[in-house]
């Protein structure tokens, strides 16, 4: 077991990881994910798909909120813009899906330039609420631009065919999401270790100090918005394809909140945390359902109509308890476990 990091060259310092076991476990995880679609049934597989799509979106939010410290309550606005960009380009104008995905990234990125502008002046919760306002305004724009978006009618979306491979089946679609998730993960990990990523973190920790050190706040804050919106837009396209029907209804405000909850539960500012948080939050309702099924007969008799609400209440309780006892998130928990493992029986 390693106890310390001894880094001697710059190359080692910026390497993704210098640990062979990390590479090994990652490879095993990827292999497991590649095999999974062939053995899971459609229901279990749908969880995997949702997790992968959510990971993409949450990693996008993580760049803005986790790295740069700009809280966004309106990220669902980028999600819905991405989904519509894809749907309009592919379903309406019969463009190839690859163009659709590109548009799903670029169009929200352009929109984020407008949304990001106030961030140059606003801070903290004021900025959060401005982004919230933008997500409502984006919905109104989509509903009003009937000629392009079909308004409230929505657009039906088919599973795509890329490079001659059809992603029609559930398993194939999961692979597509897996591909995007892995790509996004590498992209964000690399951004974090680059000059740009370090600038983001400097802005998060203290923006005035960052400016003193020569970081152009305007450029980097907007860059954070653009990158974040690009990735979230791609997630929106995937989500739209998963729903097979894109409408404003399918992207409720709740998704913004859920994405933030995932970041907090996972551990703010960590890509690993974003992944762990996603798995936790997506599977939580299923876990509460399992707990309930243990007592299902008594429960059903007790509160015939209220049992379902009790489940959602339990969801809230778990989130509160989690934040109460592990406010650094799952990543914090993971570090604690690792440290205990290394130092045991000593405490430090």
């Amino acid at each position: 077991m390693r106890t310390r990091d001894y880094k001697q060259t710059y190359r080692e310092l910026v390497a993704l990881t210098d640990s062979v076991p990390v590479w090994l476990w990652s490879a095993i995880l990827i292999a497991a994910l590649i095999i999974a679609p062939h053995i899971l049934n459609a229901y279990t597989l749908s969880f995997l798909t949702i997790i992968l799509i959510t990971v993409v979106g949450v990693l996008g939010l993580n760049i803005l909120t986790g790295y740069t410290g700009l809280i966004s309550l309106g990220h669902v606005g980028f999600l819905v813009t991405g989904a519509y960009a894809y749907a309009v380009l592919v379903s309406k104008y019969q463009m190839p899906p690859i163009v659709g995905f590109l548009g799903a990234g670029v169009i929200p990125a352009l929109a984020s330039l407008i949304v990001g502008a106030p961030s140059l002046r606003l801070k903290g919760l004021y900025l959060a609420i401005t982004t919230l306002a933008f997500s409502f305004i984006i919905n109104t724009v989509i509903l009003e631009a009937r000629t392009v978006t079909n308004g409230a009618r929505g657009i039906a979306v088919k599973r795509p065919e890329l490079f001659g491979i059809s992603f029609e089946s559930e398993a194939a679609f999961t692979y597509l999401c897996l591909g995007f998730a892995v790509l996004t993960l590498f992209a964000t990990l690399n951004i974090r270790r680059s000059r740009v990523g370090r600038a983001f973190v400097a802005i998060r920790d203290n923006d005035i100090a960052a400016r003193v050190m020569g970081i152009n706040l305007h450029t980097y804050k907007l860059l954070a918005f653009v990158t974040s919106a690009f990735i979230t837009g791609i997630a929106g396209a995937l989500y739209g394809i998963y729903l097979s029907f894109v409408s404003v209804e399918g992207f409720p405000f709740l998704l913004s909140i859920e994405a933030l909850a995932i970041l907090i539960v996972g551990g703010l500012g960590s890509a690993l945390g974003a992944v762990l948080g996603t798995v936790f939050i997506v599977l939580l309702p299923e876990a509460t359902r399992l707990v309930f099924s243990l007592f299902s007969t008594q429960m059903d008799a007790l509160f015939s109509t209220g049992a379902q609400e009790l489940k959602s209440m339990l969801y809230g309780v778990v989130i509160i308890l989690f934040l109460r006892f592990q406010p650094r998130g799952l990543v914090g928990l993971w570090h604690d476990v690792k440290r205990t493992w290394v130092h045991w029986p000593l405490r430090y």
């Binding site: 209440m313 309780v317 989130i319």
Partner: peptide, 15 residues
């Protein structure tokens, strides 16, 4: 975020 969890609980308590 805790207040968001609280919101979920209170909302469900209505039904």
């Amino acid at each position: 975020m805790v207040t968001i969890g609280l919101a979920v609980i209170l909302r469900s308590s209505i039904n």
